[in-house]
């Protein structure tokens, strides 16, 4: 009788092995499946710089504004909300560089909104240039400003979380 046949005939071995596999798999699932399929972001403490997606990133400033430039006029936030503008430096040896940014709060995040940079020399996010200064704007409830903890920038499959407080 082959080793497999004798294994299959033993109820203790079949059930024991299956339960062990199931427990190990459950632990792996709980640990991995809720961390996101994309690689975990590199966390950079306030004022520091970190590498992700072939570039280095540094958060320069996180500031609130009551209005944003929009062509010849300005845009105002929704009632009870404020704009938060993040300014960051990025540097890469790539030909072109693109990224997306999210504002990080206490267990919740906000997507960037379309906006014209407050500083005309800055790019809107990363617009393809391999290095420079980027600006992204977010709209958040006024009550959420105190909880803001930085921004997360994703470039390709990699991400960096740049910690910082609103000045």
């Amino acid at each position: 009788m082959s080793r497999l046949s004798s294994f299959l005939r033993s109820p203790v071995q079949v059930l024991g092995t299956a339960l062990a596999c199931a427990v190990v798999f459950s632990l792996v699932w709980v640990a991995r499946a809720t961390t996101g399929s994309a690689p975990a972001p590199v966390v950079v403490s306030e004022g520091g710089s970190g590498a992700a997606g072939g570039a280095t990133w540094r958060l320069e400033a996180l500031a609130t504004l009551d209005e944003l430039p929009s062509g010849l006029s300005v845009t105002e936030p929704a009632p009870g909300a404020v704009f938060v503008v993040a300014t960051f430096r990025y540097d890469s040896g790539l030909d072109t560089l693109y990224c997306t940014a999210r504002l990080v709060g206490d267990g919740r995040e906000w997507n960037a909104i379309f906006s014209t940079p407050v500083d005309p020399s800055a790019s809107s996010g990363c617009d393809g240039r391999p290095s420079g200064t980027g600006e992204v704007a977010f709209e958040v409830p006024g009550s959420a400003v105190a909880e803001l903890a930085g921004i997360e920038i994703r470039s390709g499959a990699e991400a960096v979380r740049l910690l910082g407080r609103v000045q």
Binding site: A33, A38, R154
Partner: peptide
Amino acid sequence: RDSLFGGS
């Protein structure tokens, strides 16, 4: 999972 965590 991708949409929750910003994947592809």
